Computed example of a mutant assay.
Amino acid sequence: MTLQWTVVAFFLYAEITVNLILCVPLISAQRWRLIFRWRIWSWLSPYWNKCFFTIIMVLIVLFLDALREVQKYSGPEPMQDAKVNPNVYDHVHMKLFRAQRNLYISGFSLFLWLMMRRVATLLNQVAVTMEDSAGLQSQIDNAVRAAKQQQEDKLTLKQSFLEKEKSMSAAKQQLKLEVEKLAGQLKTAEEAVRKSDADIEAMRRQAKGLAQEYDRLLREHHQLQNLQSAEDKKDW
């Protein structure tokens, strides 16, 4: 195996190892996202796309070269030569086997290289989606708690309103009773006032009669005094 195909084979083994590690279920997507956030990746990010497409182009070139070798040694001319000379037959089949091996190595390397990037991208997207889902779940929980709190506040306000309404109804009933009591007292006071007015009027009439009787008696007294004084004068 030449140097370039040895490098491609080791690259394939490295890709298989990395893809297996990426697919390990014990490492969560969030942990991979933390790993992808390391400073070294941000430092390598300006060169990552160039390196990625460069490796793709190299693998495509190697794949096409291996495909050309397979077609070359599987064609009719090498097979005819191999039938004539047995040594050439073994050599052609050895070359064909190597070409097919190189074709598989380069093809699988290209496939795993593309798949590795896709798996890393999907892991990152899954981690972002899980973080967004966690944030949305937190917002939903907060909204549910806020709704429950509002419902509890609403029930509390409703209960306080009902209690106030009951207290106001009781106060209104008490006030009504007080009004009725005061109305009864007012009616009694009015009757007492009317009675006292009648008594005062009777006393006034009685006083007026007494005054008239006093005046009459006073005139009679004066008349009697005048008569007595007249008799006394006659006796002298």
Rank of each mutant, 00 (worst) to 15 (best):
E191C: 02
V7C: 03
T188Q: 14
Q125N: 14
Q125D: 12
M115H: 04
Q225G: 05
K83M: 12
Q174A: 06
A143K: 08
V7G: 02
V24E: 11
E163M: 09
W5E: 10
A14S: 10
W5T: 05
K187N: 12
H91T: 08
A134L: 09
R117I: 01
M1R: 05
Q71P: 00
R37D: 15
T129Y: 06
I40V: 14
I16S: 04
V88P: 00
L186A: 14
D90Q: 13
F53H: 13
D235V: 11
R31I: 09
L182Y: 11
E163I: 05
R31E: 12
E77A: 13
C23Q: 10
P86A: 07
I21M: 07
V18Y: 07
N124M: 10
L22Y: 04
M115S: 05
D132I: 11
S167Y: 04
C23D: 11
L12Q: 04
K164A: 13
N102Y: 11
S160D: 13
Q125L: 12
A230I: 07
L22S: 00
E231V: 14
D199C: 03
T54L: 13
K148M: 08
A127E: 04
E131D: 15
F97M: 09
L34W: 02
Q80P: 01
Q225R: 15
W48K: 12
R101H: 14
T17V: 14
L217V: 07
S138L: 04
D81G: 09
Y47V: 05
L20H: 09
L26D: 07
N124Y: 14
R117Q: 06
P76K: 07
V119Q: 06
I16H: 04
V88G: 01
K234W: 03
I60P: 00
D153E: 12
Q71E: 09
V84I: 15
D215P: 00
P78G: 01
A147W: 02
T2A: 06
Q212I: 04
F10V: 08
Q100G: 03
K176C: 02
Y73H: 08
L64S: 10
I35E: 09
S138Y: 04
M57E: 15
H93G: 00
E178V: 03
E15K: 03
A202R: 13
L96E: 03
D90H: 12
I16D: 02
E220M: 09
R118V: 04
Y73C: 00
L22M: 07
A134V: 03
K187I: 01
E131A: 14
H222I: 08
R205W: 03
F97A: 15
D141Y: 05
G75C: 05
L22H: 03
S229W: 06
I60A: 10
Q100R: 14
Q173W: 01
L59N: 01
N142K: 13
E152F: 09
S45L: 11
A192K: 15
R219S: 12
A192T: 10
Y104N: 13
K158R: 11
S169W: 01
T2L: 03
E231I: 14
